[in-house]
């Protein structure tokens, strides 16, 4: 464990908690893409199946349980509890165009052709594009609530911190996983546009409005 990975995980945890808090407090999931949340729940389910087979550490297991539980709790809030506030008309990104290619690529490009490894690879590829429906929703509505932009900033930062973690691990442990690194770069690059808007607008107290 290193500082980059720890702050990355905490940033990830913060993002998930901010999202739950926003929906619960405002009793509304407006501006939130349910489709992205479906993808995230899929990512965690596919990736954390080893939760019961190989124990890494208490921290690792606890975080996995929290991520899976929070993902499904968010889905419940969006599609059941506060369904009336779900922005169905704008949340239209075709996630099958993300799921199928990621599944295909995971079958072709992986470290080992075993169930757990292919599912892990699928979750890595899917996570790199899982935010697209959310970014698409923000671009369609042309704006995002400030709390939602904090959620996106924390979520985008987590994988950027993981990139630093991989650089650290490469130099100090000789460890690297090309699949995770390439997908992590793609994932972080997708946030760049949002990071720019967040830094130039939200930090200065102005609302996150996309230039029309």
């Amino acid at each position: 464990m290193n500082i980059f990975r720890l702050t990355g995980d905490l940033s990830h945890l913060l993002a998930i908690l901010i999202l739950l808090w926003k929906i619960w407090k405002t009793r509304s999931c407006s501006g939130i893409s349910g489709r992205s949340q479906i993808l995230f729940a899929t990512v965690y389910t596919a990736r954390y199946l080893d939760l019961f087979t190989n124990f890494v550490s208490v921290y690792n297991s606890v975080m996995k349980i929290i991520f899976i539980a929070a993902a499904f709790a968010t889905l419940y809030l969006i599609y059941v509890k506060f369904k009336a506030t779900y922005d169905r008309n704008h949340d239209t990104f075709r996630i099958e165009f993300l799921l199928a290619p990621c599944a295909l690529l995971a079958l072709i490009l992986n470290h080992e052709f075993t169930i757990l490894e292919v599912l892990w690879t699928f979750s890595i590829y899917l996570e790199s594009v899982a935010i697209l429906p959310q970014l698409f929703l923000v671009s369609k509505t042309g704006e995002a609530e400030t709390i939602t932009s904090h959620y996106l900033f924390a979520l985008g930062s987590y994988r950027a911190l993981y990139l630093l973690n991989w650089i650290y691990r490469y130099y100090f442990e000789g460890f690297f996983d090309l699949i995770a690194i390439v997908a992590g770069i793609v994932q972080t690059v997708l946030y760049c546009d949002f990071f720019y808007l967040y830094i130039t607008r939200v930090i200065k107290g102005r609302a996150l409005k996309l230039p029309a």
Binding site: R5, H12, V56
Partner: peptide
């Protein structure tokens, strides 16, 4: 090349 890395990352 098979990388038998233990998955210790989240």
């Amino acid at each position: 090349k098979k990388q038998t890395i233990i998955k210790d990352e989240l």
